[in-house]
Design a binder for these strands. Sequence first.
DNA 1: TAGATATCCGAGTTATTTGGTCGGGATTAA
DNA 2: TTAATCCCGACCAAATAACTCGGATATCTA
Lengths: 142, 142
Amino acid sequence: MKLSAKVEYGVRAMAILALYYKEGPLPLREIAEQEKISLKFLEQIVPALRRSELIKSVRGAQGGYILSRPPEEIKVGDIVRSVEGPITPVDCLAEDRDDSCCHHKDGCLTRQVWEKLRDKINDVLDDVTLNELISLKPTQTL
Amino acid sequence: MKLSAKVEYGVRAMAILALYYKEGPLPLREIAEQEKISLKFLEQIVPALRRSELIKSVRGAQGGYILSRPPEEIKVGDIVRSVEGPITPVDCLAEDRDDSCCHHKDGCLTRQVWEKLRDKINDVLDDVTLNELISLKPTQTL
DNA sequence: TAGATATCCGAGTTATTTGGTCGGGATTAA
DNA sequence: TTAATCCCGACCAAATAACTCGGATATCTA
């Protein structure tokens, strides 16, 4: 029950972009430095975010990335699903196989839990926007 | 954001054991057949459940496994955590590293979401007992 | 006591996924 | 024109997942 490093980095990157939202495009190099992420690895993560239209790219010198919409309109769930695809706790919930979950024709005993789990995960992640992420600021290292 | 096959099989196996709870120990062979799971793979999954005292084993001929407690007292969350360990959506929530989540000394922007996510996942899974699993019966293949 | 039936244990194997790296091409501001 | 930047695809190593296999140990039944 883990998120991939890609998702974690993706969300961190988006949080940084939220902080710089009003200041025009921010190059990946900056994000990579601030978050201590390999630039090359970051480059591999952001295309998904762009294709989902969560960010826009500005090519060439002085270019970079900028959020497509204000931070309060972007949910963490959007980011997670963009980078990792739809939330599917177990394979049999994938879209392509509407019918046969397991081999049981008489109804699978466990499917309901997994559906509920999937829905709740989406709920939690959709309940937090980038704006909340950067303003609820620090749980403080305490 | 996937559960392992072990967890999925583990929950399925526990559901079967719940169905047979009143009939004494059920051998793995039976479960393996009903759920079309490799016996040898099942053998590798159940020890965790036994060590967590969710099931008891009866060795020798006519032996098998039986739930340690009635189905209504066993939560799906118990099973998942038993087989897969504690729910940690991202590594920095693991127990051993209370302090440094990421490299930020000034408080990590994202940690809160992951904590919330972890808690909600546990909530959902702890909200369903084996009894509910086998009595809410079929979402019907529909 | 002799099977037969089970659990139990640990090592080995294969396939997939993850978490990257690397090289270079296309675009554009200065 | 040069330097900064995004963009794309191939490659790679390590870890993990999903099994398999062989056999030891316990115990019921006959």
